[in-house]
Design a protein around this nucleic acid. Structure first.
Length: 458
DNA sequence: TTGGTCGCGGGATCTAGTGG
DNA sequence: CCACTAGATCCCGCGACCAA
């Protein structure tokens, strides 16, 4: 509204919209940027890169969350981009005065996620304890490495990308509010100090001039929510969280006498095999998995690399019960439990004409396959997924055949771009096929087959 | 074989919420 | 205010794995 007054808000500024942003976000951001005199660049060179929260990285200050644009527009002032980059998380966590144990705040969670990502962590995979020792040294949070390790494993490791984004967004908002408050405080102090002389308060603060009054839509610090109590200037005596360093050292030494272990990654599947984590309602998790993946290709990768590959390989090897409880559940318990509403059972090529089974129908299909093939639910469900919902093909596979229409995780990975780009049409796929983009697929596939699969994965 | 590392299970302890 | 409970955090011990 009233574009005239803000038409130059982003004047002379260039922004690059990262591919991973949703189409809606891209459209909205592009509109806002251009409306306010900015330029949307087609390449990241020389431009501020607008990303989603989960992509923030303290080592890439030029990556800024898209809220920077929105907040700037709302407050009608150019915000400080640094406050919207991963840099905000690189500040040291506030030292709370603590006795006993301290709950993890959203901020802590965000720092842990950021730390993990900076070390190449992929969703759903575990982080080695050694990494958390580094985190402790770097004061990523005020918790011990064991605590971070534990917390990450139990609370964060299985978060979906969406949840991760929410955490990061939340935390960054909290930190921004705190920084703002600190700036305001400083300003006030300065003002009172210099007030008699009436000289202008020339504080060398960065950009954000005065969003203080302007409650910047969200900047309000109600943020802390549940745990309250950690106000910025809550003069915190410097008790380093929980256990004292001394006590910790002693414990550490004692521990070093003991033996330890290390088995990289993939332990979880073996573990859940006997632990039968969430297998409960194994039904129809694949529909939601594909939805997740559409929203985020990296999830596809993570999921497939770990679980699916493992699962299918094992199935092929021994096609027996042991393969049953394979991994997936341990990997994606939440997705599993999610909406089990619709699955696509078949689809036509070309035009989007997708038939979806109802929940009941889906259950029926799965139950029937279970009965006919004597395979447990997770295996049946996973096979259906690999067969794009084709019950006949799944049946054949479960009975020992190796239908050519099945999709391997590696093949699916080649489709990531197609899945992300909702506008993809047949000619584009034709071109990709001609280019040999899918040459590495285990089974040669034509455009129709590829479109079908993309449709299914969406 | 030894020593180091890691993952996991599970117990102890603490906090927050709830009800009497 | 107190007792109780649930959930979170912290810590320990053990077995498995790996490299020297």
């Amino acid at each position: 509204m009233a574009p005239s007054e803000n038409a130059s808000l982003f004047h002379g500024l260039k922004f690059f919209l990262t591919r991973t942003l949703s189409r809606d976000d891209v459209a909205e951001l592009q509109r806002l940027i251009e409306l306010h005199g900015g330029i949307v660049s087609s390449s990241p060179a020389g431009a501020t890169e607008l990303v989603d929260y989960d992509r923030l990285d303290s080592r890439r200050p030029e990556w800024v969350s898209f809220d920077f644009i929105k907040d700037s527009v709302v407050s009608k002032r150019l915000q400080n981009p640094a406050k919207y980059s991963g840099v905000v998380f690189s500040s040291k966590p506030i030292q709370l005065h603590i006795k006993g144990r301290v709950r993890y705040s959203v901020e802590d969670d965000a720092r842990l996620l950021l730390f993990a990502k900076s070390r190449g962590w992929q969703s759903l995979k575990p982080m080695p304890a050694s990494a958390w020792k580094v985190a402790e040294n770097q004061h990523v949070t005020n918790h011990t490495w064991q605590s971070m390790h534990e917390h990450f494993k139990k609370q964060l490791q299985n978060k979906t990308l969406k949840e991760q984004r929410a955490i990061m967004a939340n935390a960054s908002e909290i930190i921004r509010a705190r920084l703002q408050q600190q700036e305001d405080q400083k300003e006030r102090e300065q003002a009172t100090r210099t007030s008699p002389s009436t000289t202008a308060p020339e504080s060398p603060k960065p950009t954000t001039p005065a969003s203080k009054g302007s409650k910047g839509s969200k900047g309000s610090k109600g943020s802390k929510g549940s745990k309250g109590s950690k106000g910025p200037d809550q003069g915190a005596p410097s008790t380093p969280a929980t256990s004292s360093p001394l006590r910790r050292q002693i414990r550490e030494k004692a521990r070093q006498k003991r033996k330890r272990t290390s088995s990289p990654v993939n332990v979880e599947e073996g573990k859940d095999n006997e632990g039968h984590g969430d297998i409960t309602s194994g039904a129809v998790y694949f529909r939601s998995v594909s939805a997740e993946m559409t929203a985020d290709p990296s999830k596809l990768q993570a999921l497939f690399h770990t679980s699916t590959m493992e699962g299918s390989r094992r199935r092929q090897e021994n096609n027996s019960e042991s393969a049953a409880s394979d991994s997936r559940e341990s990997e994606e318990p939440e997705i599993l439990a999610q909406d089990s509403s619709n699955i696509r059972t078949e689809q036509q090529t070309g035009e989007v004409d997708v038939q979806r089974a109802t929940e009941t129908e889906t259950d029926e299909i799965i139950c029937r396959l279970q009965l006919e093939t004597n395979q447990p639910t997770p295996v049946v469900v996973h096979t259906l997924y690999s067969c794009s919902g084709d019950a006949g093909m799944a049946r054949a596979f479960l009975k020992g055949a190796l239908p050519s229409g099945m999709w391997s995780p590696e093949d699916d990975l080649l489709l990531v771009n197609l899945i992300v780009d909702e506008n993809i049409d047949r000619s584009a796929v034709d071109a990709a096929v001609a280019r040999g983009d899918f040459a590495s697929m285990q089974v040669p596939r034509d455009t129709s087959a590829i479109l079908d699969r993309v449709q299914f994965l969406r």
